[in-house]
Every structure is written in C-alpha cells, then in structure tokens.
C-alpha cells in the first residue's frame, strides 16, 4: 500500500532554531495515525509542517503524488488536506451551520451531500445548527471544528489534540467519530495527549521526543513496548 502522506526527515521551525530535527511520518490511505510524545516534543509543529505553516529547511513532504514541501496552506487545502488546530478552532460568533459553510468556502456547486455527511456524523449538531459555536460545550465545539474541516471532503484530516480538556465520555465519542470518518474514506493524522487510549484505538502510532522520531509501530506494539510505557504512559 503506497503512502498518502509521507514526511521524510523534515527539519524546520518558527524562527531560526530547528524545532523539528528530522521527523519522518507516513500515513496510508484510510489509516488513523496517532502521534504522541511529551509536551513540547514538536507534535503540533510536525502537523503544522504538513499544512505549510512552518518554515521547512530540510527533508520532503509528499502528498498523494505531489511534493507539497513549501506550498502555501491555501494550496494545500485545495489539494485535499484539512487541519483542525488545537485551540481557537471554531468561529465563535458564527452559527454551527455558518461554521460548516466557512469550511466549504473553497467548494463550488451543490453542498447538500456535504451537509448531510457532517450532520450525519454529528447528529447532536443538527438541532444546534442555529446556535453560536461559542455558546456550545467544549465537546460540541470540537465536533463543529471537525465538521468544518470535513466540509471540503479532504483526503487527509489533521487533528491536533481534539480531546484536550474533554470528559472521558466525550473523548470516547470523538474517537468513535474519528473512526467513522476514517471509514468514510479519509486518512487521519491525530496528535494526542491521552496516549494510552489513543494508541489503543489507532492503526499505527509514532512517538516523538525533542523534535525527532523515537518509536513507531502499530498501536498495539507501542502499547506493549516497555520503554514507551515507561516514558510516556506513566508506567
């Protein structure tokens, strides 16, 4: 199976310093890949590198047959990658439905199918379509954020800590939905703090530390790895 996304030894950072010191990650079609690692390891930064928000100084990012290294986010969006940032990921003063409309900003033509799909994935939001996103609970806001990103019908969805600050109930729900999204044909790259739960549900995982790959493997293999367990999973 050829990879949809392939980051190869990517180096880069925000200013002069390289935060990423050689990160290599691949995501296959219809795969959920989880990235875990301690705070400040560069997980979010790796994700931003894919989305063109970082100054990449070395390595290569290939997506679906194109070298997208150095592309502007606008162009990457059109190519089929959508990104849900860790914070500030909804338009708070716009309604749920308007958030979805903004998600489809670049799309032309009939959007009914796209709306049906997101409201199908997030049935709770159907009743709240006229509510302001800022007035929703944290979990629902996260769903709005994912829905907004899905409106463009991406091939790859980047999710940065979608479960941060959510109750276990909502965390389960987000994971379930993530799986549903994957089953609808989207590859997913997911950064997670809740390493144990995330590794249990993902297809494959990477452990990053200080801006570089530390471990990789299937979720089950990583969970079984003693070193990983000691380092990141609290024993």
């Amino acid at each position: 199976m050829s990879a949809l996304l392939s980051m190869q030894a990517v180096r880069g950072g925000y200013g002069d310093a390289d935060i990423l010191q050689g990160v290599s990650i691949t995501v296959a079609p219809r795969e959920i890949v989880v990235i875990v690692g301690p705070n400040g390891a560069g997980k979010s930064t790796a994700m931003k590198a894919v989305f063109g928000l970082l100054h990449v100084r070395g390595g290569q990012i290939l997506f679906d047959g194109d070298d997208i290294t150095g592309w502007a986010p606008n162009r990457i969006v059109k190519r089929g990658v959508c990104y849900v940032p860790q914070v500030d990921n909804v338009f708070r003063e716009m309604t749920v439905h308007e958030n979805f409309e903004m998600g489809a900003f670049l799309r032309k033509g009939d959007l009914d199918a796209a709306y049906d799909r997101v409201y199908g994935l997030f049935p709770d939001l159907r009743a709240k379509r006229k509510a302001l996103a800022g007035d929703l609970s944290g979990g629902q806001r996260q769903m709005v954020a994912m829905g907004r990103a899905l409106m463009l019908d991406p091939k790859l969805l980047l999710l940065d800590e979608p479960t941060a600050g959510l109750s276990p109930k909502y965390m389960e729900q987000i994971f379930t939905i993530t799986r549903d999204v994957r089953d609808s044909g989207v590859s997913i790259m997911l950064v997670e703090q809740h390493a144990k739960q995330a590794l249990a549900f993902c297809d494959r995982g990477y452990v990053l530390a200080t801006g570089a790959n530390r471990h990789e493997g299937t979720g089950a293999a990583l969970l079984a790895d003693r070193e990983v367990a000691q380092m990141f999973l609290g024993g």
């Binding site: 500030d88 338009f91 903004m102 900003f105």
Partner: peptide, 16 residues
C-alpha cells in the same frame, strides 16, 4: 465576519 472572528481559521479555510 469569519475574518473578524478568527483570522487564522479563516485563512485555514481558504479565505483570501
């Protein structure tokens, strides 16, 4: 309105 609300996210959504 989106740009006023959250400029970064508006750009991520492809608003020029």
């Amino acid at each position: 309105r989106a740009m006023s609300d959250n400029p970064d996210l508006a750009r991520l959504s492809g608003v020029d």
